[in-house]
Amino acid sequence: MPLLPRNWPLWLVVLFLITLPIGAGILWLVLTALYNQVHGLVPMGKLAPQNWRFLFEGSVGGRPSIWVALKNSAVFAAAVATLEVLIASMAAYAISRMKFPLRTPYLGMILTLHAFPAVSLLIAIYYILRLLGLFDTLIGVILVKASLDLPLGIWLMKGFFDQLSWDMEMAALVDGASRWTVFWRVALPLVRPGILALGTFALLSAWGEFILPFTFIVSAKSWTLALYMQSFMKEAFVDYGLMAAVGLFYALPVFLLFLFGQRYLLNIYSGGVKG
């Protein structure tokens, strides 16, 4: 954007100072992952490739293979994002375009649910998962995560659908489309920015999710990367080098996704906030 605020060098300094602690954290993570020892932010000793042994050894300290955890995390994030985008799009389209009984209360409920602290539901969800036989399964956590994030997704997509003109849909109907075809071939392609934004957002949110897998997954074979990381905390002697390397490994996809996805994420703020 060519328009800079006045005093922009000053702002730059302020922003730099605010970002400094986070930057320092990341720097520490990178250094610790690479060296034997780090004092403050100054590396001591030699490069330490053994920090990365978790990539090659099947199991480190009795943990499952990192590749199993990676696969679980990927499946978890992808499934949550797919479910969320699919369901949120359809629900939001219905809310935006159709009249049905209790539409207004339903809308209010979605907003309320969005604001509801999910943690307070953990125990209830535990019982439900037990009842459904989904406790300690990846599918169970996927369903829980997707449901908890859906209200936000629906609200977001509704904002995008609300901006579509009715004319376009009427034209499609006259052209011979069914309501279903209108949704898939006209409405959905036109909210692509919303889908990409929500998809990216859901992927990131699921990738970073900790509480839900931590609470509802016990078996190591279903561990996600978040659980893998957390397992280091329990040890009497923490191998910081190893832990930092795993942390870096865990964060890498997020960096990449952000690099390519931030364009879409910004759409959330430009498109999705109209009631």
Partner: peptide
Amino acid sequence: LHPRDRDVGMVFQSYALYPH
């Protein structure tokens, strides 16, 4: 009848072309 069974063509004031 549903619009698709009526055999009509329509031009909208906004043209309503599909932008994608």
